[in-house]
C-alpha cells in the first residue's frame, strides 16, 4: 500500500461528500419547486401520513412505555434517601418530553420510515419506475418526495406526542405499582419544573427529525444505483446518516433553544 493511500482516500471521500451535498441540495430545491404541483402530490399525502405516522405509533408506544418504566425506576434508585420521591415525576416528565420522547422515537423511525422510503424509491429507481413516471409526464419529485417529506414533517410530532404521553403514563404506573408513590406525589413532581415551552421544543425537534429522516430516505432512494445490492446500500446509508443527523440536530436545538 502506498504511503499516499490514506491521503487519496480522504480526497475521494471529500469529493464524494461534496458531490452528495450538491445532489441533496438539488433534490431539495426540486422539492420546493414541486410544491406548486398540488395535483400530483396532493392525492398521495394522506396515504403517506398513514404510512409514516399512524403505522409508526405502535413501535413508538412500545419504546416509550419501557423508557418510562426504566426512567421511573432509575430516578427512584438515584434519589433514595437524598431527594424526595416525588422528584421521580419531575425527572420522568422532563426527560421524556425534552429528550427521550423525540430522540428515541426519531431513531426508531429512521429505521422504520427512512429505510422503508429508501428501499421503496431505490427499487423504483433501479427498475426504471421513476423513468416511467417521468415518461408519463409526472414530476417524480412531486409524486414521491413531496408527500413523504410533508408527511414526516407533520406526523413525526404527532407520533412523538403519543410517545410522550405513553412514556409519562408508564412512568406514573411504575411509580404507583413499584415505588410506593401516590398519584398526587407523581403529579406534583411532574408539574414542578414543567414549562409549556418544553412541549414546543419537543415538537420542533420532532418535526426536524421527520424532515431529515424522510428527506434522506428519498435522497438515498433517488440516487440509488446498482440493482438489489445498490438498494441495500442506499437503505443502510439512509438509516445510518439519518440516525447521526438526529443526534446532531438534537445537540443543535439544545444549543440554540435551551440556552437562557
Amino acid at each position: 500500500m502506498s504511503i499516499l493511500s490514506p491521503v487519496a482516500w480522504v480526497g475521494r471521500t471529500g469529493i464524494r461528500i461534496v458531490g452528495s451535498v450538491g445532489q441533496a441540495g438539488f433534490l431539495a430545491a426540486g422539492a420546493v419547486r414541486a410544491l406548486r404541483n398540488v395535483t400530483i402530490w396532493g392525492p398521495n399525502l394522506v396515504p403517506q401520513m398513514v404510512a409514516v405516522g399512524v403505522a409508526s405509533i405502535p413501535i413508538a408506544l412500545f419504546i416509550a412505555a419501557f423508557t418510562g418504566i426504566v426512567l421511573a425506576l432509575q430516578a427512584s434508585y438515584t434519589f433514595t434517601g437524598t431527594v424526595p420521591l416525588y422528584f421521580v415525576g419531575a425527572l420522568v416528565g422532563k426527560t421524556i418530553i425534552l429528550e427521550l420522547g423525540p430522540v428515541l422515537t426519531g431513531l426508531a423511525l429512521s429505521g422504520r420510515v427512512g429505510a422503508n422510503i429508501a428501499a421503496e424509491i431505490g427499487t423504483m429507481r433501479v427498475t426504471e419506475q421513476i423513468d416511467a413516471l417521468e415518461s408519463l409526464a409526472y414530476d417524480p419529485v412531486a409524486y414521491l418526495v413531496v408527500p413523504r417529506v410533508l408527511a414526516g414533517l407533520v406526523m413525526f410530532p404527532v407520533v412523538v406526542v403519543f410517545a410522550m404521553a405513553m412514556g409519562i403514563g408508564s412512568g406514573w404506573l411504575t411509580s404507583l405499582g413499584l415505588l410506593d408513590m401516590s398519584t398526587p406525589q407523581f403529579v406534583r413532581g411532574l408539574r414542578l419544573f414543567f414549562e409549556t415551552f418544553d412541549v414546543q421544543f419537543a415538537l420542533i425537534k420532532a418535526a426536524s427529525f421527520g424532515l431529515i429522516v424522510t428527506g434522506l430516505g428519498c435522497f438515498y432512494g433517488f440516487t440509488c444505483t446498482g440493482g438489489a445490492a445498490g438498494v441495500g446500500r442506499s437503505t443502510t446509508r439512509s438509516v445510518v446518516v439519518a440516525s447521526m443527523m438526529i443526534l446532531v440536530l438534537d445537540a443543535f436545538w439544545a444549543a440554540t433553544l435551551l440556552r437562557s
Partner: peptide, 15 residues
C-alpha cells in the same frame, strides 16, 4: 411527453 408513449424494456410497471 404526453404525445410520446414509452415502452420500457422490463415494462417498469408500478408494482
Amino acid at each position: 411527453r404526453r404525445k410520446v408513449g414509452y415502452v420500457f424494456q422490463f415494462a417498469a410497471l408500478f408494482d
